[in-house]
């Protein structure tokens, strides 16, 4: 009763030579609803060249999803701010380039989709871990990250323009020194 002669996920099989009960799809199989014939969405390319506009609707939900997925799958190396100094890089992995440079600001969105799908340099592909819809959400969020570090002052709403000329409100006596134990910096000024 506890262990019935049936397959549950990951239960080994003596029937197949590789010992797995999970079987790969026969080559050429197209699952229902997975024809994936929209090249812009599924390949990030149209006619062989990378798409330059997001092929899915850009919504606040997409960006929120993108932030969540970016923080799960990308931030370990690329860091939450996108400068490429994530925890795994600090432990010895090759440092990826920062997103905040002209080459990547000018790269078409299809480039990021392509890199997530196929990998790039030391970066492995994330095709198995990140489904297509989430890849576009991440791409959209990368664009938001890039804007966050490279926004012109004119984008600041008119009623906050004056704030730009205010001196930074940093705790003058504390900032830049090692934090004594028990002192919590406000989030936005953490060194």
């Amino acid at each position: 009763m506890y262990n019935q002669p049936k397959y549950v996920p990951m239960r080994p099989s003596t029937f197949f030579r590789d010992g797995r009960s999970e079987r790969p799809a026969v080559p050429g199989t197209v699952a229902r609803d997975e024809l994936n014939d929209n090249d812009a969405v599924y390949q990030g390319r149209v006619g062989g060249s990378l798409v330059d506009t997001l092929p899915v609707p850009l919504t606040p939900e997409l960006l929120a999803r993108g932030r969540e997925r970016y923080n799960i799958f990308c931030a370990p190396c690329h860091a939450r701010v996108g400068d490429g100094n994530g925890m795994i890089v600090q432990r010895g992995f090759s440092r990826p380039p920062t997103f905040h440079q002209d080459r990547l600001r000018n790269a078409p969105v299809g480039h990021f989709f392509d890199v997530i799908t196929h990998g790039w340099g030391a970066m492995p592909d994330y095709a198995a871990q990140v489904p297509v819809a989430d890849r576009w959400a991440i791409v959209a969020y990368i664009r938001a990250l890039q804007l966050s570090q490279h926004a012109p002052a004119s984008l600041v709403p008119a009623d906050h323009q004056a704030d730009l000329n205010q001196p930074l409100r940093l705790p003058a006596t504390e900032f830049g020194k090692a934090a004594p134990h028990g002192v919590d910096y406000p989030k936005e000024v953490q060194p």
Binding site: M10, P76, I88, R91, G92, F93, S94, A122, P124, A128, Q129
Partner: peptide
């Protein structure tokens, strides 16, 4: 989901 070996190798190819 138990990750496939590829997931381990994402980092452990270098680390």
């Amino acid at each position: 989901g138990i990750p496939p070996t590829k997931t381990c190798m994402n980092c452990h190819a270098q680390i």
